[in-house]
């Protein structure tokens, strides 16, 4: 991304009281493009409906909203300032397509009244407790279409550690996200878990990549 645009995004974060400069802007293109490329490789096309879990200030949204048909992008986020910031970032990228984004702390994805073909949680499971991961699958089971796919990235920590997001939101990273953990979820929710699906590029920051098919 050219420097001018990056500093403009930083300015918008400050104006909306959403965050100080961070990797978010530095890795804007790497992570945006990786997500787009991976979902396309998994079979996403413009007609599909996408749920972006932990969508942040629409970093991936700037790619996905442009690509998908009008209204097919749905984002959920816990950090409230991202709602308005996301809108301003889209303006900055001159993207005027319809999309839906909401602040949600309780996994109320059914309220969108939609069934999704794809869901993505890029660097988000890394902020969720084990209980929240379970809740996430529980609700996705209800809102994903049969054969719908969740693409997610994670880190298999040895112990839980906490994240103090923007020094405002306490979050706990999960641990022991090993095969046994996901196999138990597979069984519980009757889904298909696959680590490092074939054909995808390595994650730009080295996180593990996996899919769950519903």
């Amino acid at each position: 991304m050219d420097k001018k645009k990056m500093f403009k995004i930083i300015d918008l974060h400050l104006e909306e009281e959403a965050g100080v400069p961070s990797n978010r802007e530095l890795m804007w293109e790497d992570l945006g493009e990786w997500q787009m490329d991976s979902l396309k490789k998994m079979g996403m096309d413009s007609k599909h409906k996408l749920l972006d879990i932990g969508c942040g200030p629409l970093r991936f949204g700037t790619y996905a909203i442009s690509y998908l048909d009008e209204g097919n992008y749905f984002g959920v986020e816990v950090w409230e300032p991202y709602l308005k910031l996301g809108r301003r970032i889209l303006e900055e990228f001159e993207i005027s397509k319809n999309y839906t984004m909401k602040i949600d702390r309780g996994f109320d994805y059914e309220s969108f009244g939609e069934k999704f073909d794809f869901a993505i949680a890029q660097s988000v499971v890394t902020h969720m407790s084990v209980r929240q991961i379970d809740e996430l699958l529980d609700v996705l089971k209800k809102v994903m279409k049969p054969d719908g796919i969740l693409l997610f990235t994670f880190i298999n920590n040895r112990f839980p550690y906490s994240v103090y997001y923007e020094m405002e939101e306490p979050m706990i990273t999960p641990c022991k996200l090993d095969n046994a953990f996901f196999q138990a979820l597979e069984k519980k929710y009757q889904v298909e878990y696959r680590k490092y699906p074939e054909g995808l590029e390595r994650h730009p920051t080295g996180q593990a990549v996996a899919t769950i098919k519903f």
Binding site: I10, D11, L14, E15, P21
Partner: peptide, 12 residues
Amino acid sequence: VWDVRRKIYHSQ
């Protein structure tokens, strides 16, 4: 905090 951050980090 936000007043200070804008003075320091914002391009203006």
